[in-house]
């Protein structure tokens, strides 16, 4: 399936958001995810089915002013 992850086009095997994080080597409780502009809480990632062309954002804490 083709997805856009953090602005980059990728071909992946994963069909859920949780599986996608594992496949791309993302792990940790400090990550936040959004799909097509809406938040997907950590608790909802396992059952969240991905669709062709979905845009996913994976964010983590960073310096800020």
């Amino acid at each position: 399936m083709k997805l856009i992850v953090n602005g980059e086009a990728l071909e992946v095997e994963a069909t859920t958001l949780e599986a996608l994080l594992k496949e791309l080597d993302y792990e940790g409780g400090w990550l936040a995810t959004a799909l097509n502009g809406d938040v997907v809480p950590a608790a909802g990632r396992a059952e969240f089915r991905l669709s062709e062309g979905d845009r996913i954002e994976i964010l983590s804490p960073m310096q800020g002013g």
Binding site: V5, N6, G7, L24, D25, Y26, L31, A32, E57, I58, L59, S60, P61, M62, Q63, G64, G65
Partner: peptide
Amino acid sequence: TVSLRREMAG
């Protein structure tokens, strides 16, 4: 203050 930014794979 802190922020959120895209994390790189891995």
